[in-house]
């Protein structure tokens, strides 16, 4: 098991696997995402209470979901960085932090635009919205800290510690709507229960969540490959690869 673990830590091995996975991830991800969004936008029935404004859910929920998942993945990678000093783990963090920040921004932005017609306000300092804003700042912190320290190993460790300290925010985001009074409603999608919407609404939502996940997988692979090319410049296989790309 440990040999497989260490093999997975090899940038060269990852570069190859990622290259083989990426076309599938991109095709499937975009396909599901487009299907889910078109279905949600044009074919799903409107909501009895909110009318058509609820259609924002088909991008709001996937963005918010991914924003939190990406952070959790980064936290796992941070543990691997600190304990096993694996290059690939830090590479992952560096590659996906900006993606996570954009997804968090999208969740906040679509939430604000949705809040205006339904709640009557763009923003309110309730526990859910505030903790989500903190998540955005944690992403910014990871990006800025990573680029501020020039020594690769020191920067990887500093970022990993920051991410791990911030990981307490994730359960706070998730349970904020249950622990405290908030304007934000509780989750519609739960892992353990039936969703509180009919299938003609939750199926397109599920499709867009899955699609965005796969699309993120593609982008993460692509960006990690780029980071590998940059950092492993001195290795022979990267030299050969660069030379081959140039011709």
């Amino acid at each position: 098991m440990w040999t497989l673990f260490h093999k997975f830590g090899s940038p060269k091995w990852f570069f190859g696997i990622a290259g083989r996975l990426m076309p599938w991830l991109l095709a499937l991800g975009l396909g599901l995402l487009v299907a889910g969004l078109v279905w949600g936008l044009a074919f799903a029935p409107k909501d009895y209470l909110q009318g058509n404004s609820y259609r924002i859910i088909f991008i709001h929920v996937p963005s918010a979901f991914l924003a939190q998942s990406v952070y959790l993945m980064m936290a796992v990678a941070a543990v691997v960085t600190l304990v096993w000093r694996m290059k690939l783990a830090d590479l992952f963090v560096q590659a996906v932090a900006p993606v996570g920040a954009v997804l968090t921004f999208l969740a906040l932005f679509t939430g604000a635009v949705w809040g205006k017609p339904t709640w009557g306000t763009w923003w309110i300092w309730d526990a859910r919205l505030t903790s989500m804003l903190i998540l955005l700042f944690l992403y910014f912190g990871a990006i800025v800290l990573g680029s501020a320290i020039s020594d690769e190993k020191a920067s990887a460790r500093a970022v990993a510690v920051l991410i791990l300290v911030g990981v307490v925010n994730i359960p706070i985001i998730k349970y904020s709507v249950e622990w405290w009074n908030t304007l934000h409603q509780p989750a519609t999608f739960k892992l353990t229960e039936k969703p509180s919407m009919p299938p003609e609404m939750w199926v397109p939502l599920l499709l867009s969540v899955l699609g965005l996940y796969l699309w993120f997988g593609w982008l993460a692979c692509y960006r990690m490959q780029t980071e590998i090319l940059r950092r492993e410049r001195r290795t022979r296989w990267v030299r050969e690869l660069v030379r081959a790309e140039g011709h």
Binding site: S53, F109, W114, P117
Partner: peptide, 15 residues
């Protein structure tokens, strides 16, 4: 979208 069009479309476009 019965008056909600601008909200919905802005979100989808920005996304």
């Amino acid at each position: 979208m019965e008056g909600h069009g601008s909200y919905v479309w802005v979100c989808y476009c920005v996304f």
